[in-house]
Amino acid sequence: MILLDLFHYWVFIAILMMGFYTVIAKQNLIKKLLGLSLFQSAVFLLFIGIAKVDGGTTPILHPSISTEIFSNPLPQVLILTAIVVGISTSALGLAIVVRIKEAYGSIEEDQIQSKDESA
């Protein structure tokens, strides 16, 4: 039962490792970037998961909301920032891949390496 209680941590770890594996194992630079995005998204899930409070509602002060328990809004705000960081990283990474393609004619890591060594 304790395994199910910690369900969202397991999801976090699984996605994190999938992303990490892709970054390390794939030769294709675009695939590497996708893995990196996945890796970052897993961390977003970790933060958003911990914000949920059992029985809590939206954290808005309003007369129609009578409960005293609210979900924690802070992690979501943090992750909003982290998502922006993630998007910028992916965008910059893709821009670099475009330039690598222009300069080397390939986006496979081993081919790029062999081109540099032969040059």
Binding site: L36, V43, A82, L92, G93, I112, D116
Partner: peptide, 20 residues
């Protein structure tokens, strides 16, 4: 370019580890 790509991947992994 390949150097900076590697830097980007490793730097992001580092920052994400820090975030975890």
């Amino acid at each position: 370019l390949p150097a900076v790509f590697k830097y980007l991947i490793m730097g992001t992994i580092g920052a994400t580890f820090y975030l975890i």
